[in-house]
């Protein structure tokens, strides 16, 4: 049996199998997409804002379990928050929810959704 526990927490496995925020978001008002140059992973984040607050979020893309789980957790964390507060979400907040010991080589998998969020809130991206 492969020692997955050490690599992927239950949260990551659960979010990889059944992400809650994966899918297109109709009526998105802020969208951005970026690629991890190391592995080619791609994440597109879609947000719907009511002026100040993020009222809905979704993501699509080709990404590994860690990146997918990170995007899913990020979407959950930002929904309901004002944009300024969402911007303050940091890698540490995601890691706290993911409950995983992420190796340095895979930290970019955790942080890619964060940089996509920043681009979306700055009105950049696709």
């Amino acid at each position: 049996m492969i020692a997955t526990r050490a690599l992927y927490s239950d949260v990551i496995r659960e979010r990889w199998r059944r992400p809650r925020f994966r899918g297109e978001l109709p009526g998105a008002t802020a969208v951005a997409e970026d690629v991890n140059p190391l592995c080619g992973d791609r994440v597109r984040l879609m947000l719907r804002l009511d002026g100040v607050r993020i009222v809905a979020a979704g993501f699509v893309g080709d990404s590994c379990a860690i990146c997918t789980a990170s995007a899913d957790v990020l979407a959950e964390l930002v929904v309901g928050r004002p944009a300024a507060e969402a911007r303050a979400v940091a890698a540490g907040d995601l890691l706290a929810v993911l409950q995983a010991d992420i190796r340095p080589t895979r930290m970019r998998c955790v942080t890619l959704p964060l940089s996509v969020l920043a681009q979306a809130l700055n009105g950049g991206g696709a």
Partner: peptide, 26 residues
């Protein structure tokens, strides 16, 4: 159902080193 990076990470947990990604051939 598995991303190549996860394949490589899971194999590494068993001591097996393989490459995963675009192999510089996008």
């Amino acid at each position: 159902g598995l991303h190549p990076h996860d394949v490589a990470a899971l194999l590494d947990a068993e001591g097996i080193a393989v490459r995963a990604g675009h192999h510089c051939a996008m």
